[in-house]
Each structure stands twice: as C-alpha cells, then as structure tokens.
C-alpha cells in the first residue's frame, strides 16, 4: 500500500458506503439571480475602462481603423524602444506592419522562438510586450489570455510595459458568463490568465505599490465601433 492508497482509503472509510456524486451546488442559479440587467456593449466598454483605469492601467478606446496608428503614436510617446510581439495574430501583424512602415524608433522583436533561446534578452532588454486578449470581463475590469503558440505566456508578464488589445465585442458582463459562453471547461489552454492591471503589492505596511514582479505599466487598447477614429 502506498501513500495514495492509504490516503484514499482513509477518506473513503469516513464516508457512507453509498456515496455517489451528490447534486452539484447551484452556481448557475446564483449568477442568474444575482446578475444585473444585461448591459449594452457600450456599457461594458465603459465599465471595463473605468475599472482598469482605477487599477492604474492606461486605456485607449479606438475604432477598428484607427487603433493601430493611435497606438503607434502612444508607444513613441512612452519612449518604447524594443517591443516584443507575435505576428501570428491579425492585430500583431497589423501593428508590426505599421511600426515598420513608420520611421519611428521602435525595434520589433518577434516572439517566434522558444524562450530558452533568448530568455536573458527578454528579461533585460525588452521594454514592452504586445498581446491580444481572448476576451474580457467588465464586472472586475479583467482581460483574459489563453496561452497558445501565438500567445506565449511571458509576453504579458516579463516586459515592464504590457500592451494589450481587446475587441469590444468580446467583453463579457462577469466571470461566470465568460466561462459559460466561451466554454472554458471544455478546452482549457495550458495557461489561462486573467489580468486586472499592472502588477502590484501591499506587502510592505499595507501600502499599495505598483510594479512588483510583473509589468509595472499596462496599456489597454479597446477596439470598438464607437471608439475614437484618429
């Protein structure tokens, strides 16, 4: 008998012999009963933006046509020299193309090789990482990232500035709705991360400080039909 058997046997012994899986707690019912009236897309954009700003993220709301040039201008203004991104996403390609065409000073670092081959460089020399959120959650001001070959985990984590794009139509009202509508449980990526601002800590005398170990700054671009059009 190994540890596994002994632990499981002890637990089993403590339960009634007939211990079929009991009826599950009514999580869906709770969220159906406790959710406010459905929001319009515009309301979700406003809520997401407000909460992200409250969490110290900078937010740009822009139209489909204008976001890329607005972002390029903003990156230049922030003095971003080296930007890591993955061009396997539509928006990644668009941004890369724009930055290459412009005579700006941003150097592009395609994240297209295993991290081992440039770990030190990624940690030491990259100013910003560009990511595309899979969706977002209005109620908590949260962006959702699912890891994939086009979405390396460390792109939203290692560079001091995290630039994230989110499409307005992917914003859910709350987390339960996001999990349900996107059927998270049916196909979990190796890493699903919910991000609600730049990294922070209150570990020193309960004083809030930003830029703990993750990004110090976060810049979120919400692409919306209603957004600013350059």
């Amino acid at each position: 008998m190994n540890a596994r058997h002994r632990i499981l046997a002890k637990l089993r012994n403590a339960l009634p012999v007939e211990n079929d899986m009991q009826a599950a707690p009514a999580v869906a019912g709770y969220y159906a009963a406790n959710t406010l009236a459905p929001q319009t897309c515009q309301e979700r954009v406003a809520q997401l933006r407000g909460l992200l700003q409250a969490a110290h993220a900078e937010v740009i709301v822009a139209s489909r046509a204008a976001w890329v040039s607005l972002l390029a201008v903003r990156l230049a203004a922030l003095g971003v020299g080296r930007l890591a991104l993955n061009e396997d996403t539509e928006e990644g390609r668009q941004l890369a193309a724009t930055l290459r065409e412009s005579s700006g000073s941003v150097t592009l670092l395609p994240f297209d090789k295993p991290i081992e081959t440039w770990k030190q460089e990624l940690f030491d020399t990259v100013d910003a990482g560009f990511t595309v959120a899979d969706s977002a959650i209005a109620a908590t001001g949260t962006l959702v990232f699912k890891s994939s070959p086009a979405q390396p985990r460390s792109l939203s984590l290692v560079p001091p500035l995290h630039v994230a794009l989110v499409r307005a139509e992917t914003i859910h009202a709350h987390m339960f709705a996001a999990a349900l509508e996107e059927q998270w449980a049916a196909a979990m990526p190796t890493n699903l991360v919910m991000v609600s601002g730049p990294s922070k800590t209150s570990d020193i005398q309960q004083t809030l400080a930003y830029g703990a170990h993750g990004p110090k700054q976060m810049l979120v671009v919400i692409v919306s039909g209603e957004g600013e059009s350059a």
Partner: peptide, 24 residues
C-alpha cells in the same frame, strides 16, 4: 482576504508547454 474585487492575476495552469508553444 484583502478587500479586492479581484487580484491582479488569476493564473490557471492546466499542463506543461505543448508542442508548438514557445514558453512555459
């Protein structure tokens, strides 16, 4: 715990790096 509606990160890990992925 800390009076936050949510923390900065919820990190859901379901496995090691898969073929094709570049980190993890």
């Amino acid at each position: 715990a800390t009076g936050q509606a949510i923390t900065t990160y919820f990190n859901l890990i379901s496995g090691p790096r898969r073929p094709g992925e570049l980190d993890g």
